[in-house]
């Protein structure tokens, strides 16, 4: 499998990263190199092998359902690039 212009555009859209036209060519070649290299895994027989999502095998526990209020909205908004009246501000998204 190899990545072409349209795949890079699609992936960049999914990742929400703008790729400039002059970056595209080199990125395609880098990504193809990396994917070509990881393609080595195809050689491995993984028939009947369970995928391993985590090495953690202890049982999870349920926390007590106690409501906690750790942070104020002021604290939470403090790092926002733009906020107003206790809200995060974004460009208009509804027509």
């Amino acid at each position: 499998m190899s990545i072409d212009n349209s795949t890079v555009k699609k992936v960049a859209l999914l990742a929400r990263i703008e790729i400039l036209q002059n970056e595209e060519k080199i990125l395609i070649s880098e990504l193809n190199n990396i994917l070509g290299w990881v393609d080595d895994l195809k050689k491995v027989d993984t028939e009947n092998i369970e995928p391993m999502l985590s090495v953690f095998n202890e049982s999870m526990f349920m926390r007590k359902d106690d409501p906690k209020s750790n942070f104020t909205s002021e604290e939470i908004l403090k790092n926002a690039p733009e906020n107003s009246s206790g809200f995060f501000v974004v460009p208009k998204v509804i027509e």
Binding site: L41, V44, T46, I49, P51
Partner: peptide, 15 residues
């Protein structure tokens, strides 16, 4: 399946 799932299976083999 071809990449991510495959890698998770190989991770199991490495473990």
């Amino acid at each position: 399946d071809a990449y991510y799932l495959k890698a998770l299976k190989v991770r199991k083999l490495i473990s």
